[in-house]
Write a protein that binds this DNA or RNA. Structure first.
Lengths: 209, 209
DNA sequence: GTCTATAGGCCGATAGAC
DNA sequence: GTCTATCGGCCTATAGAC
C-alpha cells in the first residue's frame, strides 16, 4: 500500500540545495514519505544518497533534523503559494477563496511526498523541532479563516458553520497528496484545482457572481 | 504534536474482546495511533498491557499481526456503519448521501484512534496483511460511488466531476479523526455529522427536496 | 567532507521453566 | 498463558584517520 502515487521525491526550488546535502534531503523525503520517520533508518537514507551513514552527520546533527527541515520546507512552500495566490487575486471573497483552494491543491499535487511528510510525519518531531512549522501552519489556517469571514461579512457566503467549513475545505486539499493521481480520474493538476475550487465555493453557499 | 485529540484508546464492541488479548489490542491501538507502527515497540505495548513482551506471542504471531487486526477492525466497523445507515435510509439519493456522510463522520468521531491507525498505518503492513482491509475499503468506496451515480441518474445531483467529488466527500470525513474535537468548534459528534452531510449535499449541487 | 570502525543500546522474536 | 533469560541483528550516533 503506497502512501504517495507520484513518481520520485522532489523538492521545490527554494529548498533544492543540490550537492550531498541536497541528495540527503531528497533521500530522506522519499524514504520518510514511503516508510515513515521511524520506518526509515539512517543507513537507508545514506544508501539512497550514495554516502556512508557517518557522512550524514557532516550535514545534519541528527535524523530528526533532516525531518524537521523537510517538514518546515513543506509548510513554507505551501504557505508561500497561498500568499502569492491571494496577492494575485482581487477583492471578491469568491475569487479569493477560489485562488486559495487552487493554490492549496496545487501544492499537494506538485509536491505530494513533501506534503505527506509535512502532514503525516510531523508528529515524530519533538515540540521544539515542530514549532517553526506549526507556526507557519497557523498562519496558513488564518488566511482561510480570514477569507471565509470576509465572505460572510459581505453577504456573499452563507456558511453552515464557519470552523467546520474551514476544516472541510482544508481537508479536501490535504488528502490530495495521498491519492492523486488516481488511475481513472482524468484530470491534470490544474483541472483538479479548478474542480476543488468549485466544490469549496459550493460548500460556502456562495451567491452567484 | 498529538495525532489524535481524543481521550484514550477504544475499540468498538465487535472487536473489544477483553482479557489479556483485548488489553494488548488496546495498548497497540493507543501506541500505534500516537507514535506510528515503527515508533512503538513490542516492549512498549507489553508494558502498556501489563505483561512481559514474550507473553504477546501467546496471542499474536508478530507485531504486524496486531496492527493487521486493528486495521481490519477499523475498516469493518466503518463499513458496517455505512451499510447500516443505507439500510435505514429511504430511496432519495439526497437522504442516502446524507446518511452515508453522517455514518462516515461518526465512525471517525467515535473511534478516532482506530481511524487514524486504519488510515495512516496501513502502509506498514505487507500487501498480504493489508489485503482484507483493502477489500473492505473498496466496498465502502463503492457505496459512495453508487449513491452519487444514482443521484446523477435521477437528476437530483449536478456533479462538477464524479470521481473528484467522491474523493472530496471521503476526505472531509477521514480528516475528522485527526482534528476533532478542536478547542472552539462547539459541535458534538452528531452536530458535526449533520454539518458535514450538508456540506456534502452542497458539493453535489443537490436540488432542493 | 568522506571514510572505516565501533560504541552502547534497543529491536523483534524465541527457548524453556512453571 | 505467563514468566525469566537471551539470541542475533539493527539502531543512532561518535571517534579518529585521511
Amino acid at each position: 500500500m503506497r502512501r504517495v502515487h507520484s513518481g520520485g521525491p522532489a523538492l521545490p526550488p527554494r529548498s533544492a540545495t543540490g550537492g550531498t546535502r541536497g541528495r540527503i534531503l531528497l533521500a530522506g523525503l522519499g524514504l520518510f514519505a514511503e516508510h515513515g520517520f521511524h520506518g526509515a533508518s539512517i543507513r537507508d537514507i545514506a544508501a539512497e544518497a550514495a554516502v556512508q551513514s557517518a557522512s550524514l552527520y557532516a550535514h545534519f546533527p541528527s535524523k530528526e533534523a533532516i525531518l524537521a527541515e523537510l517538514v518546515l520546507a513543506g509548510h513554507e512552500e505551501h504557505h508561500t503559494r497561498l500568499v502569492t495566490a491571494l496577492l494575485k487575486s482581487g477583492t471578491d471573497p469568491r475569487d479569493r477563496l477560489a485562488a486559495l483552494v487552487r493554490a492549496h491543491v496545487r501544492a499537494h499535487t506538485d509536491y505530494p511526498m513533501l506534503a505527506v511528510v509535512a502532514n503525516n510525519e510531523m508528529h515524530a518531531l519533538s515540540p521544539a523541532a515542530a514549532a517553526p512549522a506549526a507556526a507557519v501552519r497557523r498562519r496558513s489556517e488564518g488566511l482561510l479563516a480570514e477569507v471565509l469571514a470576509m465572505g460572510c461579512q459581505h453577504g456573499v457566503f452563507d456558511l453552515v458553520h464557519v470552523e467546520a467549513t474551514a476544516a472541510a475545505i482544508g481537508s479536501i486539499g490535504i488528502r490530495v497528496a495521498s491519492w492523486y493521481p488516481a488511475p481513472e480520474i482524468g484530470l491534470n493538476p490544474s483541472q483538479l484545482a479548478d474542480v476543488y475550487a468549485s466544490l469549496a465555493l459550493r460548500m460556502t453557499g456562495a451567491r452567484p457572481p
